[in-house]
Design a protein around this nucleic acid. Structure first.
Lengths: 106, 106
DNA sequence: TGAATATATGGCAAAATAACCAAATGTAAT
DNA sequence: ATTACATTTGGTTATTTTGCCATATATTCA
């Protein structure tokens, strides 16, 4: 792994890291259905408002979402919708894990 | 987000988290080309042997890779190859980011 | 059996992340 | 202008992650 590779993999890992939190992942998936304002997330997620705001900032920083303010509210939407196509594969990993562990129990 | 959702998103995030490290991501991508023994990674990555071993353990724990020992060496391979299909999308995010930032500079 | 090689594990310190609270900012309504 | 509302930011603490070192384990070879 050379210097250039290092930069590339840092960048890729950063994107994955942004999605690698249950709340952020859930929010990203919600956005696949259309934009949402912060308050809508606040209603659904059991966490401080500031916590949610910070999670959204992480997604934004990673380039996964973009936002715009309309009136008093800030709306977030997916900037690169393909991020969610990956989820079917993540689910495949989980299923495979479940099967592996089921075998162990037998 | 109800209790069940919480469990589901925890599980999904765990898989993403496992990939969300430059070294682990690089190793996973290497494996898309076929199995590798730990020593091959050790040659290519500038890190302690034990560090590499731990990274591989994280990938294994997440169900992304599986290993088997043959002689003195342990070989790792992808268990669910689709994890890498996602990378084209991660790259799309990065490109989009680069463009966004390029605009800011102008 | 004993030495050498390949890998894993335990322990620890440093760095990064997460969540909360309180306070700041920006916008709209009175 | 003042107040209320929506969101962000700063500060702090607890938790998690990372990476190194030293040590343990397993396997092969002499």
């Amino acid at each position: 792994m050379n210097e250039k590779d290092k930069l590339i993999y840092d960048a890729k890992a950063k994107v994955l890291k942004a999605l690698a939190h249950p709340t952020r992942l859930w929010m990203a998936e919600q956005l696949s259905d259309g934009e949402r304002c912060v308050c809508e997330f606040a209603d659904a997620v059991d966490a401080d408002f500031s916590t949610i705001s910070k999670h959204l900032a992480v997604l934004k920083q990673a380039g996964i979402v973009e936002d715009d303010k309309r009136g008093k509210q800030v709306y977030y939407r997916l900037k690169v919708p393909c991020v969610l196509k990956f989820m079917s594969c993540v689910e495949a990993v989980i299923e495979s894990q479940v099967k592996t562990q089921a075998v162990l129990i037998e």
